[in-house]
């Protein structure tokens, strides 16, 4: 593998990516880069290609033209086993959690360790316990996904995404469908987990609160292109009308970043 040399660059890099799905042009020359260890938020109207972008990163979709590089490798060009080894470095948090509904939380979180890494049970258990502890679900380990709230399901899914200690974490609308307090606690939890793991993050969201809490940089997609990009601070004070529309900017937004550290415990209970 030539990963050693190419790994030094960005974790994720899109180079003029084009993609057509069902006769509709979704991505039109999309280019952006996510440096290692940073969090990149993707915003924009529905149908602008945000989720499709995530699918390109995990290799579910391959570009029609242009290149997608993840840790220097092109997911769409890899063999089955190479793709598996690349995916083992990536964790994906689905919009509704996508927990396996007939397994309890503990077994769900253990899935990547048992099925992919094939670790012995004595190594699986402490790591699952640690991941559940990180998302404050240690005492719900035996519960089934149908027995818990939406916020808890998201946190359990986050535990499953981080249990294999991925270097890149992808989030598809992490606070969608949650009340503002629960959504806020999820966002702060994501920010803390990102920092603790030192992982790179790509977050697709419609929520200003999520973008400003979690993102180091924010990109606004429009019609399959990057319409505007900048640091969270730049975007929060931007005069660009497109940015202001999607961020719904007003003065209080930036305060969410300042209290983002260590505040999960206070509001964590609302997610249950």
């Amino acid at each position: 593998m030539s990963t050693a040399a190419s790994d030094a660059g960005a974790a994720v890099r899109f180079e003029s990516v084009e993609k057509q799905l069902g006769g509709k042009q979704i991505l039109r020359g999309l280019s952006f880069e996510v440096p290692r260890g940073t969090s990149f938020v993707i915003m924009g109207p529905s149908g602008s290609g945000k989720s499709v972008t995530l699918k390109h990163i995990v290799g579910i979709l391959a570009p029609d033209a242009g290149r997608v590089l993840v840790f220097g490798r092109e997911p769409g060009q890899l063999s089955r086993s190479e793709l598996a080894s690349l995916r083992s470095r990536i964790g994906l948090l689905f919009q509704d959690g996508a927990l396996i509904n007939w397994m309890n939380l503990e077994d769900n979180v253990a899935l990547p360790l048992r099925e992919v890494q094939r670790l012995p049970e004595r190594e699986v258990r402490p790591r699952v316990a640690e991941a559940l502890e990180r998302v404050h679900l240690a005492d719900a380990a035996q519960k089934m996904p149908s027995e818990i709230s939406g916020g808890m399901r998201k946190r359990a899914a986050l535990a499953r995404a981080i249990v294999s200690r991925p270097e890149l974490l992808l989030y598809d609308e992490p606070d969608a469908g949650l009340d503002p307090a629960t959504g806020g606690s999820i966002n702060r939890l994501i920010r803390r987990v990102q920092r603790e793991l030192g992982a790179t993050g790509v977050i697709v969201t419609h929520s200003r609160s999520c973008a400003l809490t979690v993102g180091d940089r924010i990109g606004i997609f429009e019609q399959g292109r990057m319409a505007s990009e900048g640091t969270a601070e730049e975007m929060a004070t931007s005069s660009d009308p497109r940015v202001r529309i999607y961020l719904g900017i007003d003065g209080e937004a930036t305060t969410e970043r300042s209290d983002s550290r260590g505040a999960e415990h206070g509001t964590g209970a609302t997610g249950r």
Binding site: I60, R87, I100, L111
Partner: peptide, 17 residues
Amino acid sequence: GTMKVSDEITALEVMSI
């Protein structure tokens, strides 16, 4: 089918299961 439409199957594939 329920697993498929609620992304559980895709989640398995992304985890390389």
